[in-house]
């Protein structure tokens, strides 16, 4: 038996919005510790990994580990039927888990919607993500990162990210011209969520597809801050932390011939 009741149901709605364009089908791996999902996009360029810890639910019950194979587009359609303030409960019977039950309670508890989502068998590759000491870790406002990606998409399909000392620089070059945005590290004690924090072991310069980065920024509503982790010749990690877990996107770099 699996049961997970999320008081902040709106979070699940936002979470689905942040993965559904990257991944079509995925397994939700449920265990005592929580709900996890790991999936690559069709072209194997990006990987998304998310975790919702069991402590974030009230209550959370999962007798033994099992996987719920879900078409994310279908789940997203059903979640659109939940109000932003609804409490969302997910239920599945592990013996015959061919469907996932969802119930949506409004805050007054006088309207309850109940839905069933058919599950599917998904044979998914699982990758082991190595523990990495990144050369550069940047914490910055998530809205700023979203704006930079959106703005530079006007110029090019790819962006070079250079991190050195106290500056992160995003550069795009395309047929119409070029553009770059430099952010200096700042510290705002009053508003830490508005500051740019750069932790640097050594300088990094890497190129990435803006199309994928734009997709990752669908996670912006989940957190005021985004964490970017870079190392030479390694995938970029873009992370949005939530109270109850995280969503991490990994993007393979573009490398010169």
């Amino acid at each position: 038996m699996f049961e997970a009741r999320l008081i902040q149901g709106g979070l699940l709605k936002k979470l689905l919005e942040s993965v559904k364009e990257l991944v079509t089908d995925a397994n939700f791996d449920c265990s005592e510790s929580g709900i996890a999902l790991q999936a690559m996009d069709n072209s194997h360029v990006a990987l998304v990994s998310l975790l919702l810890r069991s402590e974030g639910f009230d209550p959370y019950r999962c007798d033994r580990g099992f996987s719920l194979g879900v078409n994310l587009n279908s789940l997203n359609k059903i979640l659109k039927c939940a109000g932003n303030d609804d409490i969302i409960t997910l239920r599945a019977d592990d013996n015959s888990a061919d469907s996932l039950s969802l119930s949506f309670e409004n805050p007054n508890n006088d309207r309850i919607g109940e839905y069933e989502l058919k599950l599917m068998d998904i044979d998914q590759e699982h990758l082991s993500i190595p523990e990495t000491d990144y050369d550069a870790t940047i914490i910055m406002p998530s809205a700023e990162f979203q704006r930079i990606c959106r703005d530079l998409t006007v110029v090019s399909e790819s962006v070079t990210i250079d991190v050195s000392k106290d500056t992160i620089k995003f550069t795009a070059e395309g047929e119409l011209g070029s553009g770059n945005i430099k952010l200096k590290s700042t510290s705002s004690i009053d508003k830490p969520e508005e500051s740019v924090n750069i932790e640097l072991g050594q300088d990094v310069s890497l190129q990435f597809s803006l199309k994928y980065l734009m997709n990752f920024t669908k996670g912006t509503p989940l957190s005021e801050q985004v964490i970017l982790c870079l190392s030479e010749k390694m995938p970029l990690l873009v992370e949005y932390k939530m109270d109850i877990g995280y969503i991490r996107y990994y993007l393979a770099p573009k490398i010169g011939d």
């Binding site: 690559m40 699982h126 190595p130 995938p235 990994y250 393979a252 490398i255 010169g256 011939d257």
Partner: peptide, 14 residues
């Protein structure tokens, strides 16, 4: 010229 690498070049299968 740039080549897009694949994520499975970096992360091994389990």
């Amino acid at each position: 010229n740039l080549t897009q690498t694949s994520i499975d070049n970096f992360f091994g299968r389990t």
